[in-house]
C-alpha cells in the first residue's frame, strides 16, 4: 500500500484505476477514456459474438496495451461462472478472472456461497481470481484463505452510484487484509467516492458506470483518475486525526493586546 505502484499477480501498474467498460455510450470514446485516465487495466464481459460488428473492444484494448480483466458478469451459479471463466481464458489468453456470481437481478449483490464455491474450483484450475464480494469481512477472510489474487468488496450495488454505503465495513476489510490487494468495486458515483476509497487504504478502485454513464465520460474518467491519485497520496501523507473541538492553527501565544 505504501508504494506508488499497484502490484497485482506480481505485475506492477502505475495506475490504480481499473476501468469497467460496461455502459459505454459508444466504443469510439473508449480510446479517449483510456488516454485521459491513463488506466492500464480494463474489465470486459463475455458474450456471444456479433458476426457483423466492425469495431471490437478486444482490439481497442489490445492496441492500447491494456491488461484485460475478463469478468463472469451474468452468472448466477458457480457452475456457470466456472464455464465462462474457461471461455475467457481460451478467448483472451489470460488466467485473470474477475469472479462475479450474482444473487439476484434487482440488487446484483454477490451470492457469497456460490462465490466461495467458484473461487475454490477456479483457484484449483490455476486461475487468478479477483473476487467481487459483499462488504463482509468474514467472506473476505475466507476468500483470502482460498488464495484469491484480489478481494473486491463493493462500495454499493453495481451501477447505483451510491458511493461508500458502509464505510466502516470497508475499513475493517482493508485494515485486516494486508497481504492481498483490496480493490473497491461497484457503486462509485463520482471522483470524491474514489478518493475516499483510496484514503481509507484501498489498493485500487474499479469504476465503470460512474465514468461510462456520466454526462461527459471522458471528463469524468479524468476526474476519477485524479481522485484516485489524490486519495492515494493523502493516505500516504497521513491525515490529521478528527477531533470534536478546534485546535488553533495560529499560535495563540504572543498575541498583541488589542483592547
Amino acid at each position: 500500500m505504501d508504494s506508488r505502484n499497484l502490484t497485482l499477480d506480481n505485475q506492477t501498474f502505475n495506475s490504480r484505476l481499473i476501468l469497467g467498460t460496461g455502459g459505454l455510450p459508444s466504443l469510439e470514446i473508449l480510446s479517449d477514456i483510456i488516454k485521459v485516465s491513463q488506466a492500464e487495466i480494463a474489465t470486459v464481459a463475455l458474450r456471444r459474438i456479433n458476426p457483423n460488428q466492425k469495431l471490437s473492444i478486444f482490439n481497442i484494448l489490445t492496441e492500447h496495451s491494456i491488461k484485460i480483466l475478463p469478468n463472469t458478469a451474468g452468472c448466477y451459479t458457480a457452475a456457470e461462472a466456472v464455464k465462462l471463466a474457461e471461455l475467457a481464458k481460451e478467448s483472451l489468453e489470460t488466467d485473470w478472472i474477475k469472479l462475479e456470481v450474482i444473487g439476484d437481478e434487482k440488487t446484483l449483490l454477490p451470492d457469497p456461497i456460490e462465490l466461495i464455491k467458484a473461487s475454490e474450483i477456479l483457484i484449483n484450475k490455476d486461475f487468478k481470481v479477483f473476487a467481487y464480494t459483499n462488504n463482509d469481512l468474514i467472506i473476505a477472510r475466507r476468500l483470502v484463505s482460498l488464495g484469491v489474487t484480489a478481494v473486491m468488496p463493493l462500495a454499493s450495488p453495481i451501477g447505483s452510484g451510491m458511493g461508500l454505503e458502509n464505510l466502516n465495513g470497508l475499513i475493517r476489510i482493508i485494515e485486516e487484509i494486508q497481504n492481498v490487494p483490496v480493490i473497491v468495486d461497484a457503486g462509485i458515483g463520482t471522483a470524491s467516492d474514489a478518493a475516499l476509497a483510496m484514503e481509507i487504504g484501498a489498493d485500487a478502485v474499479l469504476a465503470a458506470s460512474a465514468i461510462t454513464r456520466a454526462v461527459d465520460s471522458v471528463k469524468m474518467a479524468h476526474a476519477i483518475a485524479s481522485g484516485i491519485e489524490a486519495g492515494h497520496l493523502a493516505r500516504q501523507a497521513g491525515r490529521i486525526p478528527k477531533q470534536l473541538y478546534a485546535v488553533p492553527s495560529s499560535d495563540p501565544s504572543n498575541m498583541p493586546s488589542l483592547k
Binding site: 469497467g20 467498460t21 460496461g22 455502459g23 459505454l24 466504443l27 474489465t43 470486459v44 464481459a45 463475455l46 458474450r47 456471444r48 459474438i49 471490437s56 473492444i57 478486444f58 484494448l61 484485460i68 475478463p70 469478468n71 458478469a73 471461455l87 481460451e90 478467448s91 483472451l92 453495481i158 451501477g159 461497484a186 474499479l206 465503470a208 458506470s209
Partner: peptide, 24 residues
C-alpha cells in the same frame, strides 16, 4: 482452437461462439 479442425459436430449440437464485450 487447436482442436477445431479435427472436431466433429453432431446433429443437434449446440455451438457457442463468444468474445469480449463491454462489461463492468
Amino acid at each position: 482452437k487447436s482442436q477445431w479442425a479435427t472436431f466433429t459436430v453432431n446433429d443437434m449440437d449446440s455451438v457457442e461462439i463468444i468474445t469480449a464485450a463491454q462489461g463492468g
